[in-house]
Design a protein around this nucleic acid. Structure first.
Length: 923
RNA sequence: GCCCAGAUGGCGGAAUUGGUAGACGCGCUGGAUUCAAAAUCCAGUUCUGGUAACAGAGUGUGGGUUCGAUUCCCACUCUGGGUACCA
């Protein structure tokens, strides 16, 4: 009887739908487990074999947990706002919603074929108003909150208003805009509505402000820092420039410290934690004020992590964007300085990055006063200081910082040495184990101690304060795009107000998806009547960025159809955090950081009881394609086999992997692949074959190396695909996709099928040998699943089947156990066999077996006997023999003399049940 | 440059705490079955020498610790990822 996977898979897909097998509800009598995949953006290209890798792993784990009696939440949905659909809309005029729907249908068909145990009743789409209503709601919560550093959490903005009425902002310790002035209660009371609102905006967690943004002309929108790579947009690779614009931002910087420290509480890979740490970029040090010579009303604030080097300061450098430049530059230098700053403004971030070798700068003509020595030190302006980091000014210490050293060298500035026993003629000394000299009260101190002493002195003399600086910046939250969440915001006299109604602000229909004639975002094209709610002078024209919807979607899955709340409190208290989250490492900073931020915010507001979204995270490695190549002889239509290519002048050409089997070109297929090859000629090897070259690279249509899961499912079945993707190697690793091996896994499943059908099955009690085989397998499979070692489980199942076949086992009891172990990987064939074995329930409701050590015990163990560490032979010995007995048995062994050659035995090491090492010869 | 991860047969990979390196699968070789093919089954397969028994080498390179190292330590090479005038 043949293994007809197509029929079996069709049959069980239907049964699972009819019986609602994967439907899940809260059940307080059961322990919960939440398994989540990073939900996909439904692109037009559909899935290739790389996409489902993580979904398969998580599905296996979800099924495994269910068999262990857990109530498993395993949902799927779509991150369906995004640029490609909008780009398509611009080109064709088709509403992005239509494209999105079409793509989702395609994705769903493909996903359904693979046999996932998703509870599709919980499906969400971020572009659905019933979903983004709540994304807007969270935005409103952020708008109505500020961060209190005293309580160390977000509080309602109403409390801040009360405080302003009582005391102004003097006692407020909250992250706010840099330009926030200090005011008292009287002043507050005297301000009009607009002024008060403007002030509140400086504190809100969602705020509107003029900021330097990454403007991407090619995409017609601003981008977040993590969407920019090397000065180009990550999506589309368009150049990005700095531009000042009024934008919505989220005050993620308020959460910097918590985002950093709470990394310790989650089970994520070190590399992702490291990336987030770097992104947050915490550095500790001091901010120090330098008075300006002859201009005592102004001072320069610098940030340094090395206050111990204060006596090594020989000049100050300001960023070309620094506000003080205009005020302090002396008249003679004005032209030069203006000119330089103007030039720097024209330079893009990218140019500044590329120019690291060329040191440039100008002298302002002004001097600062060294706070300890009172010496005059020159103030310079240079592009190597960034306006956006720290205070936009540095105290330069040439002996301790290579950039400062280079700058001093170029412009012939002082390089005082404050490190004992060091030579700074060739470069700065960055070694932190040195001792300080020439530094008054810091002399003879080591660096770490000197830092503390210096900060104390700075604080005591009121020259500055201890300070912690973070690299992370607030996240820009506006996009000048159509296909995203509209803001629940309207403007009255240019002041933003929230729309208080409990209704979703829906995307209004527009006729053209391009920016309006005056450059406003596309939403400006909507007329008043097009909006389902319209207030004030106008609605907000921006939409939210791609990561808005994905920052909280894991919560919505718990309660996807709730019309009254974003998620029901009881439900979220039951499901809590995601226990296992699987997805690509490319979201290391974006999505994963923003979700953590929103989770902490919702926790502060008391909506949820946990402050981290994802307990355990696994990043699946990318599946790479294996491209095939042919060599065409230059200026001909003749192709030469790999072995002989060096004899000709050739060009290497990608060939569709469909035309290649085992690196041997199917010449007929190749000729038919493209018209230009119809009459191609070939130079073959000795065996009359054409051998192709190969390369491992990213899977891509243009490289003709993509593998569509649908084709493989038709050919081998979904069970085979699932098992093979796991068998390929460790989940986290990058690995090449090569269908050569898929036969092996397919053969295994065929073997399973034959094993059940070609034997007459017996209901009698298995013998100890049979139990031993299956219990060994139970133990290994369970252990490996618990450590997420998905690939080795497949091997254990193969070994088990091989062993059972060898002894011609036909016991139903054993086969039942084996099929349960197999079922998370190959749910279709397992369901079918389970039913055929006469089980009345579904295999999904079976119980995962527990191994019994009783069956695994052995009386003897095989020892490897080694001489001076080299293994020579093995012997079988009874367990429980004493070490002395083992030693004498080995020394008496007939083979022993061969290796000893009458030399003296120094020592015999016996590791129980494992190895014996005879040490001899030396001395 | 800095930070992180990795390197094992012809290929994907295994070896959970230092204890028989190469499990399992692919591929390859030989055989059985067959009119033939497919499918299936059996045997072999790290390299070198040898018919074999066996011997020698062997987990990116060089050193070290240890009775014993793929595993621990030091230095280096290469590959992948992150990040970059970050003060």
């Amino acid at each position: 009887m043949d293994y007809k996977f197509n029929e079996i898979e069709k049959k069980w897909s239907k049964i699972w739908i009819v019986q609602k097998t994967y439907r899940v509800t809260e059940d307080p009598t059961k322990k919960k487990f939440y398994v989540l995949d990073m939900f996909p953006y439904p692109s037009g290209a559909g899935l290739h074999v790389g996409h489902p890798l993580g979904y398969i792993a998580s599905d296996i784990y979800a099924r495994y947990k269910r068999l262990n009696g857990y109530n498993v939440l395993h949902p799927m949905g779509y991150d369906s706002f995004g640029l490609p659909a909008e780009q398509y809309a611009i080109e064709t005029g088709q509403h992005p919603e239509i494209t999105t729907k079409k793509n989702i249908t395609k994705y769903r068909e493909q996903l359904d074929k693979i046999g996932f145990s998703f509870d599709w009743e919980r499906e969400i789409q971020t572009s659905n108003p019933s979903y983004y209503k709540w994304t807007q709601w969270i935005f409103k919560q952020l708008f109505n909150s500020y961060y209190c550093n005293i309580d160390d959490r977000a509080l309602p903005i109403s409390e801040l208003i009360e405080e302003f009425k009582r005391n102004g902002n003097a006692k407020v310790k909250s992250p706010c805009d840099k330009d926030t002035p200090v005011f008292n209660a009287l002043e507050w009371a005297s301000w009009d509505e607009k002024k008060q609102q403007d002030m509140l905006l400086k504190y809100r967690l969602a705020y509107l402000s003029d900021t330097w943004v990454n403007w991407c002309e090619g995409l017609g929108t601003v981008l977040a820092n993590d969407e920019v790579k090397d000065g180009y947009s990550e999506r589309g690779n368009f150049p990005v420039e700095q531009k000042k614009m009024k934008q919505w931002s989220l005050r993620i910087t308020a959460y910097a410290e918590r985002l950093l420290t709470d990394l310790n509480s989650i089970d994520w890979s070190e590399s992702i934690k490291e990336i987030q740490k770097n992104w947050i970029g915490k550095s500790e040090g001091a901010s120090i004020h330098f008075q300006i010579f002859d201009n005592l009303s102004n001072s320069i604030e610098v940030f340094t992590t090395r206050p111990d080097t204060i006596y090594g300061v020989s000049f100050i450098v300001l960023a070309p964007e620094h506000d003080l430049i205009k005020k302090i530059t002396c008249p003679q230098n004005k032209l030069l300085v203006n000119d330089y700053c103007q030039q720097m403004k024209l330079k893009s971030e990218k140019d500044r990055q590329l120019n690291t070798k060329n040191i440039s700068g100008v002298f302002s003509g002004a001097y600062a006063i060294h706070p300890f020595t009172n010496k005059k030190i020159p103030i310079w302006i240079s592009e190597y200081v960034l306006g956006s980091y720290g205070t936009g000014a540095i105290m330069a210490v040439p002996c301790g910082d290579q950039r400062d050293w280079d700058f001093a060298q170029k412009f012939n500035l002082d390089k005082p040495n404050i490190f004992d026993n060091t030579d700074i003629n060739q470069g700065a000394c960055i070694d932190k184990s040195v001792t300080i000299k020439n530094s008054d009260f810091l002399n003879k101190l080591k660096v770490p101690e000197a830092i503390q002493v210096a900060i104390n002195a700075i604080e005591k003399n009121k020259l500055g304060t201890r300070k912690i600086n973070y690299k992370i910046r607030d996240a820009i939250f506006s996009r000048q795009r159509y296909w995203g969440e509209p803001f629940p915001v309207y403007y009255k006299q240019n002041i933003p107000y929230l729309i208080e109604e409990d209704t979703c602000i829906q995307l209004p229909p527009i006729t053209k998806y391009l920016p309006a004639e005056n450059g406003d975002p596309p939403l400006a094209r909507a007329k008043q009547d097009d909006w389902n709610i319209f207030k004030g002078d106008r609605m907000e024209f921006n939409t939210m960025p791609g990561w808005a919807g994905s920052s909280w979607y894991f919560l919505r899955f718990m309660d996807p159809n709730n019309n009254h709340e974003f998620v029901n409190k009881e439900k979220v208290n039951y499901w809590k955090q995601v226990d296992l989250y699987i997805g690509g490492a490319e979201h290391a900073v974006g999505h994963l950081l923003y979700s953590r931020f929103w989770t902490k915010f919702l926790f502060d507001k008391g909506f949820i009881d946990f402050n981290e979204p994802f307990k355990k995270l696994i990043n699946q490695g990318m599946i790479l394609g294996r491209s095939s190549f042919v060599y065409r002889i230059k200026n001909s239509n003749k192709f030469v086999t790999l072995e002989k290519k060096d004899q000709y002048e050739t060009s290497k050409i990608h060939v569709d992997i469909e035309c290649v089997d085992n690196d041997i070109l199917n010449i007929e297929k190749f000729k038919n692949w493209r018209a230009e090859y119809n009459n191609a000629e070939f130079i073959l090897n000795k065996e009359n074959n054409y051998v192709c070259d190969y390369e491992i690279e990213k899977m891509s249509k243009s490289k003709y190396n993509t593998q569509n899961p649908d084709d493989l499912i038709n050919k081998f079945g979904a069970d085979t695909l699932r098992m093979y993707e796991m068998f390929l190697g460790p989940l986290e690793q990058f690995k090449p996709w090569d269908i050569k091996g898929i036969n092996g896994v397919h053969n295994f499943l065929k073997k399973v099928w034959r094993f059940v059908h070609n034997n007459k099955l017996s209901s009698s009690k298995p013998n100890s040998g049979e139990y031993k085989i299956i219990h060994t397998c139970i133990k290994k499979v369970t252990q490996d699943l618990n450590r997420y070692s998905f690939n080795t489980v497949v091997s254990h199942l193969m070994i088990c089947l091989n062993d059972l076949s060898k002894i011609k086992c036909n016991k139903k009891e054993i086969i039942n156990l084996f099929i349960i172990l197999l079922s998370p990987y190959a749910p279709f064939i397992s369901a079918e066999i389970w039913q055929k074995l006469g089980n009345k329930n579904l295999i999904n409701d079976a119980k995962w077996p527990v191994h019994d050590n009783m069956y695994l015990l052995e009386n003897t163990s095989t020892y490897a006997v080694s001489f001076n560490g080299k293994v020579r032979f093995t012997i079988k010995l009874d367990k429980g023999l004493k070490k002395e007995d083992i030693q004498s048995l080995v020394l008496k062994h007939p083979k022993t003399e061969n290796y000893l050659k009458s030399q003296k035995v120094n020592r015999v090491i016996v590791v129980p049940n494992k190895i014996i090492n005879v040490v001899f010869g030396k001395n």
